[in-house]
Design a protein around this nucleic acid. Structure first.
Lengths: 197, 197, 197, 197
DNA sequence: CATGAATGAGCGTTCATTCAT
DNA sequence: GATGAATGAACGCTCATTCAT
C-alpha cells in the first residue's frame, strides 16, 4: 500500500514499512552514489537491496517519490547536523566558517549521501535546488547590513560558496582519500578573505 | 567504421568526412542545449541535422565518441578564445581576472556550446573533467612562486574558481537574462581578494 | 481457499463468508460501473470496500471467480425482477413485450449493475454469455407453435432482441439521460411487428 | 522512422514500409480476432508476425496508431464493399436489405477483420463508433420522409440494426460454421417488417 | 479470518546499435 | 558514403497472486 493511500489512523505506518522504506532509501543512495543517477534504475537499486524490483513499487508510489525521499532524508540529516553549528555562531564571519566546515564535516560522515544528492540535483533539475542557497544568501546579506562584510552580490557569493562546497563533495566521492580537513580550511580562508570588509 | 581505424592511407580523413563530423557535432550541441542531455537521443540529433540516424553511427564509433567530440570541440573553441587573453596578461592577478572574464565572455558569445557541455558534464560520468582545471592550477602556483599570491592550495583554489564559473554557466543557461557582466565582476573581485597576498 | 472446497461440514459457508462475498461483489459492481472494467483492479475494488486486497483473494479463488459471481448475482437479480412479469403474460406477444420492458426497467432501477455486466461482457471473453438467450429463444419457439408468431429463426431473433436490449444498456450507461421509456416502446413495437404473424 | 516524421516528398513511404505496415496490421487483426483485444499485446502481435516487438514500434508511433490503422483499413475495406451496393438501391426498403446483406457478406469474406474491429470498438470506447450508425440513421429518416417507412425513432432503429449485425458477427467468430446466409435473410425480413409502413 | 508484504510476469515505450543494400 | 530497417536490452510501472503471521 502506498503512503498516499495509507490510513492516517493513530498507528501510522508499521514498523516493517518504515524499515523497508529506510532500507530502500539507503540502497538508492548507495546505488546513485556508486553508479551515478543515470544508471540507478529500480532494477539496480532492488538488486543491491536483495529484493525484487516491485518491492520498491510497493513501498513507493513511483521512482519520483523514492528520489524525493532520498532528497528529504539527506537534507533533513544535513540540516540537523549543520544549522545548529551555524546558529551557534555570533558573528557573520564565524557563521560562514561554520557553514563551510559543517558542510564538509557532513561529507566526511555521510559521503555517499552527499554524493547521491549531488547526483540527483544535477540530473533532476529540482525546484528545491534553487531554494537551498537562499538561507545562506540571506545570512550573507545580514553580514553586510551589520557592516561585517564588504559590499558584494550576496546572490553570486552564495552561488560561489555552494558551488565550491559541492565541488569538494564531487572530488571526495571520486577520490575518497581527499584531505577534507585541508579543503575545509582552504575554502574557509578563501571566503573569509573574499567577504571581509 | 570507427574514425580511428579510418586513416589507412597517408591522406587522413576526407573533406566530406570532416565536414560531416563537424555538422553532426554542431547539431548535437544544438540539440543538447535545447532539449537537454536526457532528450538528446541520436534520433533527435539526426532529425535536426536532416540526416539519417545511421549517418552518426557511420561517422562516430558510438554516442560516446560523439559526446566526447562535442566536449573536445567546445573545449578547443573555448581555449582558443580564452588563453590568448590570459597569456597577454603580465601579472598573475591580471591573468586570473582575464581567465574569469574571458570564460564568462565565452558564455555570452557561445551560449549553446556552454549549455551543451554543462549538460554533458552533469549527466555524463566524464573522465576528462579532471584535466580541465590543471592549467589554471599551474598558473596559480606560478603566482605564488612570484610572490604575487598568498599561500593557499592551488588545487583547491583552482577547483573553486572553475566551480564558480561553471555555476554561473548553469545559472545563465537556466536564466538567459542573467547579468553576466555583474557575475564576471563579482567573481573577479572575489577571487582577487581570495588570492591576493 | 476456494469457496468450492469450503463446504466440508453440513453447515455450508458461514454467515460472515456469505456477507463478505456479497459485500465484495457489490463493491466490484460499483467499481466496474464507475471506473470501467480496465481500471477495476483488485486494488481499486478492495479500496472501495475498505478492506485489504487479499481479503478478495481469500474469499474468491481469483479475479475470474469474482467476475463470474458478479455476472451470476446480477443475472439472478435481473431474472428475479423480470421473469415473473414475463410469466404473468398469457400471450406470446405480451410475453415479448414484458420481456423487453422489464429488461429496460431493470436498467433504470439497477443502472450500476447493468453497467457493470455490460462492461464485463465487452471486456471479458465470457463463456456463459451464450446461455442467456436460450430461455427467450424457447419462448419465441412456443409462440410459433401456438401460431401466434410468424415463421422465423427463433435463434437469430433471440440474438437480435438481446443485442438490441444490450445496446440500449450500453447507450444508457454512456448517456444516463437517455429516454428509456421511449427505447422500451420503440423496441417493443419493432419486435412486435417483426414477430407478428 | 515513424509515419509522423516521414518526409512528405513525392516518393511517400517506401514499398517495404508499406508492406511491413500492412503485414503488421494483418497480424494485429489476426491476433485481436483470435485472442481478444485484452490479450493482444505488442509481444503477441509481433510473435505472430515472426518479428521483434520493436519492429512495430519502428513502423508505428505507438500501439494507438496501430489500432487506429486497423480500424481505418477495415473500415475503408468495409465501406468500399458495402456502400456501392447500398447506393445502387432505389427504394429505402431495398437499401436496408442491401445494407444488411452487404454487411454480412463482408463478414463472410473478412471474418477476422470484422471480429477484430468489433473487439476494438467494444474495448476502445472509440469516438468513431458513434458516428458509424448515423449514415444509416439518416437513410432511415429519408425512408420515413418518403413515406416508405412507418413512424419510428430512426436513432433507436439504427442502433438496433447495427447491434443485430454486430451480434451476428460475434456469433460467426465464435462459431465459424454459422449459416450467414440464413442470418442475413432473417435480419433482412425482421427489419423489413419492423420498418414497413 | 484477515492482512501487509512480497513476487514475477507482463505491459508499452525508448534507444543505441547493427546490418544489408 | 549513406540509409532504412531491424534488433534486443532496458526502462518505469501495473497487477493478480502467494505467503507467513
Amino acid at each position: 500500500m502506498q503512503s498516499k493511500t495509507r490510513t492516517i489512523g493513530r498507528d501510522g505506518p508499521s514498523f516493517i514499512e518504515v524499515a523497508r522504506r529506510a532500507q530502500i532509501v539507503e540502497c538508492a543512495i548507495d546505488t546513485i552514489a556508486t553508479l551515478g543517477y543515470a544508471q540507478a534504475s529500480l532494477h539496480q537499486i532492488a538488486e543491491r537491496a536483495g529484493i525484487s524490483k516491485s518491492v520498491i513499487s510497493y513501498h513507493f508510489a513511483g521512482k519520483d517519490e523514492l528520489i524525493q525521499q532520498v532528497i528529504d532524508d539527506v537534507s533533513a540529516a544535513g540540516a540537523a547536523a549543520m544549522w545548529p553549528r551555524v546558529q551557534a555562531e555570533t558573528t557573520s564571519a564565524g557563521m560562514l566558517r561554520a557553514y563551510i566546515h559543517s558542510h564538509i564535516e557532513f561529507m566526511r560522515t555521510h559521503p555517499k549521501h552527499v554524493a547521491a544528492v549531488t547526483e540527483i540535483f544535477t540530473h533532476y533539475r529540482s525546484k528545491t535546488h534553487e531554494a537551498a542557497a537562499t538561507p545562506l544568501e540571506e545570512r550573507l546579506r545580514q553580514g553586510q547590513r551589520d557592516g561585517e562584510f564588504r559590499e558584494f552580490s550576496p546572490r553570486v557569493m552564495a552561488w560561489t560558496i555552494r558551488a565550491a562546497i559541492d565541488e569538494v563533495g564531487r572530488r571526495f566521492v571520486a577520490t575518497p582519500d581527499l584531505d577534507l580537513t585541508e579543503c575545509a580550511r582552504e575554502l574557509s580562508e578563501t571566503f573569509a578573505l573574499a567577504t571581509n570588509r
